[in-house]
Design a binder for these strands. Sequence first.
DNA 1: CCCAGAATGTGAAAGGGATTCAGATCGTAG
DNA 2: CTACGATCTGAATCCCTTTCACATTCTGGG
Lengths: 203, 203
Amino acid sequence: MTSTTPLRRQPVQQRSAKRVERMLEACASLIEEVGYDGVTTTLIAERAGVAVGSLYQFFPDKRAVVQALTMRNLEKFIQTVDERFTSTALEHWWDGVDTIFDVYVSMHREVPAFSKLHFGDVVDLRLLDDQRDNDAVISERIAEMIATKFQIPLADLRLPISVAVAAADGVLNLAFSSEQAGDQQIIDDAKTMIRGYLSAKLP
Amino acid sequence: MTSTTPLRRQPVQQRSAKRVERMLEACASLIEEVGYDGVTTTLIAERAGVAVGSLYQFFPDKRAVVQALTMRNLEKFIQTVDERFTSTALEHWWDGVDTIFDVYVSMHREVPAFSKLHFGDVVDLRLLDDQRDNDAVISERIAEMIATKFQIPLADLRLPISVAVAAADGVLNLAFSSEQAGDQQIIDDAKTMIRGYLSAKLP
DNA sequence: CCCAGAATGTGAAAGGGATTCAGATCGTAG
DNA sequence: CTACGATCTGAATCCCTTTCACATTCTGGG
């Protein structure tokens, strides 16, 4: 059901696994340099030191490369948040929300092309799951983490978290559209807004 | 400075004006049917009953057609909000905010392809003004209208309105991603959230 | 009413990037 | 060491976008 692998074929030998890796890196750096529209399959292959055909050996099409990149970013995001949730003592759910914001912000700075891709702005949705779009998937994961960590019924969390994620996504986009490092005032406003909204919605 | 016309050439004769009109309509209906990526210049020309060359007579490229469509939608949006602002007595600024929400929602239902295009999701930003992106332009216009109508200093409004627009855009996207008509509960939540945020920011 | 120049209309052809495919190579189980 | 699956390759093909030289349709001035 879930199309967790946009790959046409899973690399089985280490050799190819490394090449797939290189293709993804090449793609990321190219997106940074020339933007999504400027990226070409030939360019990716070239920079990865690979023949175009090799790219298509593993990815069904150009978009799939970007999808794979996005998916990997999303996994890293979830994992990082998860780690912080388990390693840190958080008093209230809003500390959890702050943590999530911080992780998102640092990914903008550390992960190549993340600031241009986010979790699916450019590529089509329905990437992680063919039924729901990315934001829904992310929201569900976040809702689960918060439900577990702060012992709030998951059912009460789903809609509010979805709305909060959508709003935060929009505002953070704004925060990062002008400045590479993100406008701190806008980021803070986003936190405040989300906190205000969730405070009213959560029991 | 402002590239108010993505047109390569302004139609001067009525004949061509009508054809340009037909091209835009064809484009809108095609976006509804096959999505942005499925739209082809040949398809647009065909449906508009026009040669491909004619399309390029007025539009520099495919994207420009969609941009023109988006721009027209944006103008209609601003104009409609403006009309309601002048024709209706609004008590507080949040009534103004509600009005804006309502106009946005009704455009989703009435304007072909609007729910797929919004104000620049698909096409690149920097469409209305080559310095600022669309949301910035919209925010500025909204800020001006609210400043005038409710006599609030424009300077106090700029940032909060930008943030509010970004957040609302994100949440409304969510509201319309699942249901054609828009999930009313999410729309209401968006209003509440914005009101809460702005209440804290405005004097 | 007629003509020159501008505004338009046309669609075949050029240009480019995405994707494929028939072979050539590499890796490894047996 | 051999057979077979896993990989690689890159020229050829497909499909779209965009251009261009030529045909047709206005429009204002004489």
